[in-house]
Design a protein around this nucleic acid. Structure first.
Lengths: 228, 228
DNA sequence: GCAAAAGTGTTTTGTCTACACCCATGA
DNA sequence: TCATGGGTGTAGACAAAACACTTTTGC
């Protein structure tokens, strides 16, 4: 490095991951028991420090993989939190990311290792530092996102019923929709494949299973949709 | 500070400001000639380092004020750019902000001091590092923002004509709209006060001047609108 | 045969789009 | 009086919202 910048302060830079999952009824966020002082043992987002040799995004990916064992997960940057006193133990700026994962995909052993557990968004416990703000902002972002881009693929199992998909959107918006209108709208997007297979555990009649058409889904992820 | 974090790397953290203005026809961005090595003398966004004693947001505000002499400007965080090699001279992460200002409000002397000038978005010169990405992303954000929130107040003079407002939206979307439909839509938002005063320089008949109703405008800024 | 969830269409309402003429004024 | 830009309304297309009954099948 040249000496050009030598007279400037260097700061600790962290990443924190807001990890959302959907259990069929509720949106949940993954919290861990903080493993460091200060505030050790309290509920916290999963985080870590950015090293000099990795990009901020890579750091977030690493942290997410450490906790869940998953790579190739949908993750986007949320916001950089840079208040001077946001971390009680010193000057740390944190770049928050939010990730969407299929709730059944995580590795149970890893979660236990980090004393992690899923918390309904309506019952988030007290969390350290400004993590509450991060969670609130990420929920807003998720809602905005879901208006303009499809999110089902990231949060639902590969095969799912129309009911599950609708329940997801109802959970995101904390609202309920008309079944017929919802089905019509979703099908008109042309991103679903209806399987001949049926899910028979929830009703006698059984409901069709769907999968996302990956190509069309990804196209809409780029182009945007107009849902709601 | 406790010693808890002592074994982690510390990084240089910068802010860069994308400053947009509207000249009645075009959206323009304010660029400066970079005053530091490396790349000294090349076009760049206005930036600066975050010191240990100020928040990231305060640093951005400071940088913006240094350049324009303005405080109380609309500014929001865009994105944190954290690639390892984004700055040729060393590891610097940068938090980009975008600001909207009334183009006539800046202090000419300050602009000269920083060798700053306004550049049409269609004719952005080569800029240092990843600033091109920052500008591109900020334009996307401006467009998204303008769909969901009113932006006229930040970019137009206090009193403005319907034509100016429409020209602003046409510039943002690089598109043209039907005059009647545009007027109807905007007026239906109920955020404008029509003055009895008329602007008479552009036509014989003269066109009504409007101001924003600050209260209603701010309400919509929170609640969101649906424009376009 | 009945309980429980699944699947499906139509009507109404509101919103978006396209489109053209008269008005006021200064020169 | 005429040239210039300013202001205004309506009809048709399209999308959104409201709304209820029939189907399947395991028990």
């Amino acid at each position: 490095m040249t000496k050009a910048y030598n007279n400037h302060d260097r700061l600790l830079v962290a990443v924190d991951c807001i990890i959302f999952g959907f259990d069929g009824t509720e949106i949940k966020a993954l919290l861990v028991k903080r493993s460091l002082e200060p505030e050790k043992g309290k509920w916290s987002l999963m985080g870590g420090f950015v090293s000099a040799k990795e990009s901020v995004h890579d750091a977030a990916t690493r942290v997410l993989e450490n906790l869940t064992g998953l790579d190739n997960v949908y993750m986007e940057q949320l916001h950089c939190f840079g208040d001077v006193k946001r971390d009680a133990a010193g000057r740390v700026i944190s770049v928050a990311y939010f990730a969407l994962i299929k709730l059944d995909d995580y590795k149970e052993a890893l979660l236990q290792k980090h004393q992690a557990s899923w918390h309904s968004l309506h019952k988030i416990p007290a969390v350290v530092f400004d993590h509450k703000k991060m969670i609130a902002l990420s929920l807003e972002r998720l809602q905005q996102k879901a208006i303009a881009y499809p999110i089902g693929f990231e949060l639902l199992p590969t095969k799912f019923t129309m009911q599950q998909l609708q329940a997801l959107y109802e959970a995101v918006y904390n609202n309920s929709f008309d079944k017929r209108n919802f089905t019509k709208k979703i099908l008109s997007l042309n991103i679903l494949n209806r399987l001949t297979e049926k899910e028979k555990t929830t009703s006698r009649k059984g409901s069709f299973l769907y999968t996302f058409d990956k190509k069309k889904y990804n196209l809409l992820k780029k182009q945007g949709i107009k849902l709601l």
